[in-house]
Computed example of a mutant assay.
Amino acid sequence: MGAFLDKPKTEKYNSHGEGNGVHFGLSSMQGWRVEMEDAHTAVPELPAPGMSDWSFFAVYDGHAGSKVAHYCSKHLLEHILGASLATTPAGSDSSPSEPPAPVPPTVDAMKAGIRTGFLKIDEHMRSFSDLRNGMDRSGSTAVGVLMSPEHFFFINCGDSRAVLYRDSHVCFSTLDHKPCNPRERERIQNAGGSVMIQRVNGSLAVSRALGDYDYKCVDGKGPTEQLVSPEPAVFEMVRAPEQDQFVVLACDGIWDVMSNEELCEFVKSRLEVCDDLETICNEVVDTCLHKGSRDNMSVVLVCLPNAPKVSEEAVRKDAELNKYLESRVEEMLSRPAEDGFPDLVTVIRNLSTDNNLPTLPPGGGLASKRSVIEAVYNRLNPYKEEDGTGADSECHW
């Protein structure tokens, strides 16, 4: 189930980049977990012949350790490309003296290559001595998007999730692989397992994953027929350059506290006030922490050419909201109270019932303004005591 710290680790890993007309930012935070088990991949320009105008982004949510997640973040793409390009013929050559030009995979070859790549990396990792002898029992979900100039290939194995925001609404979302899903439950039961408390054999919360070899040793069953399957779901979509705005990939530490629509509306609202994608991703993980997420958190934001742009009006309204929050906190802290100086939880509760509060960021709410509130509180707190983020567990954002 996972153990927890006394207070969350809020240091973040960040990165950003661009290529092939897309910009990306990412952020990951350990949070309340005793270990950081997430990993990610961001390759805006693929290094494969004939595929330099393709991009790949992914998030891996490890469990029972980080080994599988970290290995996949470094090597899953090469397994996918190896399988995809192996079945793709070289291009025709108009000149006998020159080698044929490389040709990118067809849609069908790419979809087959993704599936084969997952099965191959899962088989390959099984040979690692510590995974083979049970000294390491780790596993990992994987969610990603492979982008060609014409298509999206959304890839999912487990309960991390990818969403596409198109024409100002959630156009597509991958489906989580949970043991209680009828198709997943049937496979688990056919392999001699059971689903209890919505977990495989009452233990594992996902029904598809890489690694997790304790659940992949049923004699007479193929790799996709085991209690836990490494087979990804692959969804191909034609890109719509005039409507496509952004893609979000995130682990369940994000989705546990925000719906698809909430997260996308929050990202859209932040893109209208800030063009720094790392900052926006940091705001996402901070907001999810303050909304009560107890898991590791990782998010990758991929902005397409038609992504929302910074708006002067949105910047002005955001500044007005920040100013209002600062003034209200100052007002609350300046009034003497019978029971002494108010704690931060009390301040936040009072703000949450303020009928004059300007419109908060959609999807993020008051939780997304925690840093603004806390900065004023800490500046005016005469006791200068450690706030203790554990108070968040008592605060309903």
Rank of each mutant, 00 (worst) to 15 (best):
M1S: 14
A3S: 15
D6N: 12
T10H: 03
K12Q: 05
K12D: 01
G17I: 13
W32T: 01
H40W: 13
H40A: 10
A42T: 01
E45F: 00
L46H: 01
P47L: 05
D53W: 08
G62Q: 01
V68H: 00
A69L: 01
Y71I: 04
S73C: 10
L77Q: 06
E78V: 14
L81C: 09
A83T: 13
A86E: 09
S94N: 14
P100T: 00
A101S: 14
P102G: 07
V103F: 05
P105I: 10
V107M: 12
I114F: 05
D122L: 02
E123A: 05
M125Y: 00
M125N: 02
S127M: 00
F128W: 09
D136S: 05
T141K: 11
E150K: 13
F152S: 07
N156K: 13
C157D: 13
H169R: 15
V170N: 02
C171R: 15
N181H: 13
N181P: 11
E186W: 02
E186R: 07
A191V: 08
G192E: 07
V195P: 04
V200A: 09
G202K: 02
V206S: 02
R208L: 06
G211R: 04
Y213C: 03
V218M: 11
D219T: 04
K221S: 02
K221L: 02
E231H: 04
P232L: 07
A233E: 15
V247Q: 12
D252N: 14
G253L: 00
E261K: 07
E261S: 13
E262D: 12
R270Y: 14
L271H: 06
T279V: 02
E283T: 07
C288W: 06
K291N: 10
D295I: 04
M297I: 03
L301F: 12
A307I: 09
K317R: 15
A319N: 11
L325W: 00
R328L: 07
R328Y: 00
V329F: 01
V329R: 04
M332Q: 05
M332Y: 00
L333W: 07
R335C: 08
A337C: 15
G340Y: 00
L344G: 08
R349D: 10
L351T: 08
L357M: 10
L360C: 14
G363S: 03
G365N: 11
S368N: 04
I373H: 00
N381T: 01
N381E: 01
Y383M: 09
E385A: 04
D392H: 10
S393D: 06
H396P: 12
W397Q: 09
